[in-house]
């Protein structure tokens, strides 16, 4: 199977004066259409790794290949297009735009891509909002819904452009275990139906164990890599 995302010899060192190495020689190849989980203790380097995968952060050394293209060779606008069309982010902190409604937030990636919204896009956004159970609050401003609802809106937003890869950093961190289960099933459905590749950082062992592959990070190194497929 073809790998959609590949990390080669990734090192990450923070700081100029006081250097802290966070990632050590990480090599990873993610296969297209798989559902992957990343686990590890707090501070082990999971978020750093995910941000590097998503081209938001740059490794100190090493290569990141998305769909076979080295992102080092991509210029700003190309990287922007990659983040908009190929990658969907669900951040640890939900990060909706507070000036916009939940629906407008979900539509934002579409608008960035096309410059405007279409009727079909609105229909699709509403479907995703319905899937995450937000149809009743979709016209509320982002600040006027609960933390859990904001996180679900952020999930709907990540799905909007139907990206090939979704990177999620503890996407169910704020949700109770029932909602966590529902969201997980939803992401799994999307994975099956659209073939979207998922890389999810999670604390929840039940979710981690249901993934096709479970990668454990410890002190900035891949400690364990369990592939069940």
């Amino acid at each position: 199977m073809m790998s959609i995302l590949e990390l080669k010899n990734i090192e990450k060192i923070y700081g100029n004066e006081i250097k802290t190495q966070v990632l050590y020689n990480v090599n990873l190849s993610i296969e297209k259409g798989t559902f992957n989980s990343i686990i590890g203790q707090s501070g082990s380097g999971k978020t750093t790794l995910l941000n590097i995968m998503g081209t938001l952060d740059k490794p100190t050394s090493g290569e990141v290949m998305v769909n076979g293209t080295n992102v080092k060779q991509m210029h700003n606008n190309k990287l922007s297009a990659l983040r908009n069309e190929t990658i969907g982010f669900i951040f640890q902190f939900h990060y909706l735009l507070p000036e916009f409604t939940a629906l407008e937030n979900v539509l934002m990636p579409y608008q960035i891509k096309h410059g405007k919204v279409s009727k079909d896009a609105i229909k699709k956004a509403k479907e995703y909002l319905h899937l995450v159970g937000l149809e009743n609050v979709m016209n509320n401003m982002a600040t006027k819904i609960s933390g859990g609802q904001q996180q679900r809106a952020a999930i709907a937003r990540a799905l909007m452009n139907e990206p090939q890869i979704i990177l999620a950093d503890e996407p169910t961190g704020n949700l109770d275990s029932d909602s966590t289960e529902v969201i997980y099933e939803l992401l799994r459905d999307i994975n099956h139906q659209l073939g979207t590749t998922f890389i999810i950082i999670t604390h929840d062992n039940r979710i981690a164990e249901k993934a096709d592959r479970m990668i454990e990070i410890k002190d900035g190194r891949i400690y364990q890599d369990v592939n069940k497929k």
Partner: peptide, 16 residues
């Protein structure tokens, strides 16, 4: 700046 950061993470162009 937070909003600009989110928009950029979602792939809005710098020029936009």
């Amino acid at each position: 700046s937070k909003q600009i950061g989110i928009l950029k993470a979602m792939g809005i162009r710098n020029s936009a």
